[in-house]
Amino acid sequence: MSRQQPIELFMPPNMLKAKVGGTHAGLDMAAINRAESAMEALKGEFATWAQDDVRRLVTARDAFAADPDKTTRAGLLRAAHDMKGQAATFNYPLIARVAGSLSHLIHDLPEDAPLALGLVDAHVNAIHVIYRDKVMDLSNRTALALAQELEARVAETLGA
């Protein structure tokens, strides 16, 4: 038996197109080149972004260690998740990977299951080391092995 649900489908007027005009002639390469240059300049300016984010992650970790409740756990997840997005954008792919592993762990672990501080710390320490050694490529074998090990531990925890 099919579901019956009233559906109203309509196209609102395209006010955006009316406002910006122009023609759809592919990507505006001049604007793209300008933006890419501006973004490169910004990456240099943001040399300290990672330091701020590592500090934020450590603060979130400390809050969770002191009082491991729903709120501090959510704060830790937010810090790890933000770092995942930022690190990839600002050329720290391995930090992005480790932060991604940490956010995967916190997000996918059932809320009533305890979050092991040891595994959290292993991720936070790894991020510290990758940042301290300024590992910005994917060819550093030690850092890669560390990321893989952490991911395996997370998979093991979530699979258990």
Partner: peptide, 29 residues
Amino acid sequence: SGYRFDRLKILVVDDNVHMRKLVVTILQA
């Protein structure tokens, strides 16, 4: 494209100041 992006008003929402600045820089360019 000839788009008049200068006519647009765009709101950028992010709790991370670095990410916000990055998006704003791209849009300004």
